[in-house]
Amino acid sequence: MAIELLGYRGWRGDLRSPWMACWPIVRSGLSLVLRRKIFWVLLALGLLNFLFTFAIIYIKAQLAVENPGFAKFLDSVKVTGTGEAYLDFMFAQGTVTMLLLAFAGSQLIGSDYHQGGLSFYLSRRMERRHYVSAKLLAIEAIVLLITTVPALVLYVEYGLLSNSLDYFRENPRILFGILGYGLIMAVVLSLLLAAIASWVPRAVPLVMTWSCIFILLPIVGEHMRNIRDNRIWRLLSLWRDLRTLGKWCFGSLNLERDEDRLAYWAAWIVPAVCLICLIVLVRKVRAVEVVR
C-alpha cells in the first residue's frame, strides 16, 4: 500500500548517539537468555543459593541474641558477614554463571557469526566498537545480575539486620570487594566468551572449548604442580586466578599461603588474557568471511 495513503509523516528529530544502541542489544541478549527454559535450571540454582544465604542471614539476626550457640552453628555455613563469606558466595554464583555462559554463548554471540546476523547490526548507524561494546555489556549484565547484585543485597541485608549500622562504616572494604570482584568476573568472562564464540560459534564446540579452559587446564595445572613441584603451574587455572584477585579486592589475601603468593602473577595474567581476547574479537568482527 502506498505509504502516503496511510497518513504516515516523515520523522523529524535528532537521532541518539550510536552508543545508545548498546541498551537494545543488552536487553535483547538478556531476554534471549531469560526466555529459554533450559537456562532456568541454572538460574534457579543461583537463585536457590542466594535465597538460602538470605534466609540464613535473617535467621541468624533473629536468633543470635537469644541463642548464641545457634548463631555459632550458623557461622559454620560461612554466613559470617566477613569478606571471605561474600567471596565464597560470589565464587559459587560465579560457577553457576560460568555454566550458564557456556551454553548461552552460542545464542548471545555465536549466532551472529554462524548465521550471518552480524550484517544486521553493522548495517545500523553504529560501528564495530559499538557492536563489540554492546555485546560485552550484555554478557556482563548477566554476570553482574547473578553474582554482584545478589551479593550487594546480602550485604545490605546483613548490615540492616545487625545491631547497628556501624557494620557499613566498619566494613567499607567489603563493598569495594563485592564491586571489584564482580567487575573483574564480568569483564574477564565477557571478553573470554565473546572471543571464543566468535571463533567457535556453534554450541557444542563452544561448550567444549569453555570446558577446556575452566576444567581441563586447571587439572593439567594441578598435575604439573605435583610433577614439577612448582606452584606457578596453578596459574593455568583462570578461575583460581580470578578468585585470587577477588581476595585482593576483599583485602583477605594472606601472603603466607601458597596460592595467595601467586597474586602478583595473576594480576598480570588476567589482563593479558583480556587483551588477547579483545584483539581476537576486534579482528573477528567482519561481515564477510575470507573465501577459502
Binding site: 537521532l15 542489544i25 535483547s28 548507524r125
Partner: peptide, 8 residues
C-alpha cells in the same frame, strides 16, 4: 529493535 539500534 533495529529502529532503536539506529538511534530512534
Amino acid at each position: 529493535t533495529m529502529a532503536r539500534l539506529h538511534g530512534f
